[in-house]
Nucleic acid binder design. Structure first.
Lengths: 194, 194, 194, 194
DNA sequence: CATGAATGAGAGTTCATTCAT
DNA sequence: TATGAATGAACTCTCATTCAT
């Protein structure tokens, strides 16, 4: 499973890198052949490393999710849980900007997790959960919000940013509003939602 | 333009209805053939009514956007602009739940508007803009938010609701947080976003 | 077989007329629906009068061939068989100019003559044969040419005129060369053909 | 551009060969699928080698036109320009026998020359022009004929040969008449054409 | 192990022809 | 009888995946 030859390992890495770009631009509808072309390898090489298009997509996502999870876990022990939570939220949204395939993958949160990527969304969700709880304990986030809606907001704003191609400025203001909603201490004269 | 024969009109309506469902589930990648099959008509019948797949998609979207615009305009003259704004926001999010194609269409806000559907997203955006201004004048929404981010939140939460398949409950709570963010009067000790 | 109602007879005639135009322009690849549209009738009406596209094409051709045959027969008794022959040749070539479908039909000279049009090309060929023999008897056309090659020249020049869209001038000069070849009395130092 | 693998080159050649046959019989309306079937390859293989049906047709035509041009140029320096001209004329007509698509292509003499095949008909025409001028200078062809009508006769007789499926004998006699017309020194008592 | 040619299943679209009004 | 809506077969073209080199 661990590739012995160096060139093979290099190829795998390069393909993954290119795939990220290609799928980011064209969404999961982008063609495998373009990945091969841009990676400078034959199409069969792509399929040797990733036996299926789905597998390639998953590998791209796994890498991303692992990245994010790592970051979330690194922030979990922060002395300032409030800023840590908000920083991660903002980072994720910015990171997702323009990455269609990545974004579409958030869908499978609890979904049809058969593949290798299956547990990643759950793990990320849990990591976010940890940050959230800490931030709530620190009084930076309202106690009455739950992970479900926070995750939905995360996904939603990230999706919007990616699909509407918001520039950093608008993205920041959009995120700012959500932050205000999460931080607001007192719920008041809100009209019954729906 | 108005078809004279009853059966044709029925078929057209049935196709449109089915297409809404099919595209809602599979996004715009879903096949025209499935629409035909589920509508119980031959593939050529679909193409008689909608000469192009794109035309079919547009028809579905136009119908939806027109619905939403109508509703937004109906609320524009409300005596209570605040609740009107929030009600429309919530309604749109609920309405979009599960409708992938619809949601994907919000993208083209000012986009490649060539087809008949071209002006709809813009119109909807403008209608939302009207509601927003009124709500701000009434003091129900912070004066410092702009249409851009409100629209982004609208699209984002709708997308999240659709893709994560949130149930009505979670959706309501998610929307609630955004509402708090929009209503919050005083911005305070927020950490520099990014 | 003879339609009793006047409107039906009118429709048939109009369709035939339009079909001639349409097929002339687009060749036999032109669509039946365009014929119907330009004739101002429903597509089903076309198929009522001509049960098959092939039947419609044949009707167009039959009309044309009958026209030509009539003309050829009218010239058969001419006092001046030479000019008569050459006149008919030139007329046919001019007549065919731009009429793709017509021209393509000359193909079936002895061909798969199943349909109603089957005997027409043969009849036309025979009528040309009569003109040719007379012209040869009158000494206006070389005695050693046969109907086969004359017909081939007829078809060939007509086809060329139609497909290359030759204007009347070039057409006339082209035909003139063929006439010289047909009239030439003495065959001489020609190199072995092929 | 030159394919490295032998099997691919063979396939390409076989497809081209079969396509020539298929289009020869059915004209350019013949289906790509039949080409694939007769070549014993999958339909996608045809499209790999020729990305478009039009491209396949063009490849067939280019091959033929290049053949003919080569031959015409080879004859351009002949010591006996008269026989050279007549030989080429006869050769082209024989070569075209039965090849509908090829023949149809002569049409676009100066036509919608966008594709790669675009310049070929023009080149052939020019090559014929050279042969013609030489033959006229040598006194073998009348000085008063122009390339336009010679080309028309070329195309016409070729078309007739192809469509009427003339055997070599009749073809030769037909060509012979045209040759007489081209060679005839004195124009005489011809009736006014048309 | 890398390559790229071959593949077949499907997608969108068109058109001659039939059927219900 | 005239209409035009419905039909399905056929066609061009694409793409993930496999196979021979």
């Amino acid at each position: 499973m661990e590739p012995t030859r160096a060139d093979a390992r290099d190829n795998r890495a390069r393909i993954l890198e290119v795939a990220e770009d290609v799928f980011a631009r064209g969404g999961s509808a982008a063609s495998t052949e373009e990945v091969a072309r841009l990676a400078g390898v034959g199409i069969a090489t792509v399929f040797r490393h990733f036996p299926t298009k789905r597998a390639l997509l998953e590998a791209v996502l796994v890498k991303h999710f692992d990245h994010l999870c790592e970051r979330a876990r690194g922030l979990a022990d922060s002395d300032e849980p409030g800023p840590a939570f908000f920083e991660f939220f903002g980072h994720l949204v910015d990171d997702a900007a323009g990455k269609l395939a990545i974004i579409e993958a958030f869908t499978d949160a609890g979904g049809d997790a058969e593949g290798q990527a299956g547990r990643r969304p759950r793990e990320l969700r849990e990591a976010v959960g940890v940050l959230l709880v800490r931030a709530q304990e620190a009084g930076a986030v309202r106690a009455d919000v739950r992970l479900e809606e926070v995750y939905a907001l995360l996904v939603g704003v990230a999706r919007a940013g990616a699909h509407l191609q918001l520039d950093a400025h608008v993205r920041a203001r959009t995120v700012g509003i959500v932050f205000d909603g999460l931080a607001a201490r007192e719920r008041d004269e809100r009209r019954p939602v729906q």
